[in-house]
């Protein structure tokens, strides 16, 4: 239920932000009649309409009985997903400074510890060339 609403609201917000960004595009004399902002604005309007339809659908639908299925699992899966993302980001941030191999070892060790592995998962599958 909440997810349907979130989808609609997010679509509307994104459409508005995107429209504003399109409107701020500079105008070029080399441009055509449609312009650099023409198609993006059309997309933004279409997305806004879809967002409204989605909201209407979410509001009109009778509240389903099975609302508690996801909340029961709690935030733990999301936190773990965030953890994986954190490792990946740390990897990207660290690598340029310390080099590929050095960054890979703690990253894979770190990753394996978070998964409670017996030994560090080897991840040197291919060196960036």
């Amino acid at each position: 239920m909440a997810r349907e609403l979130v989808t609609g609201i997010a679509a509307l917000a994104l459409a508005a932000a995107y429209f504003a960004a399109a409107d701020a595009l500079p105008v070029s004399l080399l441009s055509d009649e449609v312009g650099a902002d023409g198609v993006p604005k059309a997309i933004a309007v279409a997305l806004g309409l879809c967002g409204l339809m989605q909201l209407a659908r979410a509001a009109l639908r009778r509240a389903p009985a099975a609302a508690g299925d996801e909340t029961a699992a709690g935030a733990k899966p999301h936190l773990r997903a965030l953890g994986l993302l954190g490792i990946a980001i740390a990897y990207v941030v660290v690598t340029p400074h310390v080099g590929y191999l050095v960054a890979t070892m703690p990253a894979s060790a770190c990753r394996s510890r978070s998964r409670r592995c017996r030994s560090p998962a080897r991840s040197c599958c291919g060196c960036p060339s």
Partner: peptide
């Protein structure tokens, strides 16, 4: 300079 001038002339540059 020349490129800059023509880009400005055609509105690609402020």
């Amino acid at each position: 300079k020349e490129v800059e001038a023509s880009l400005q002339e055609f509105g690609l540059l402020k």
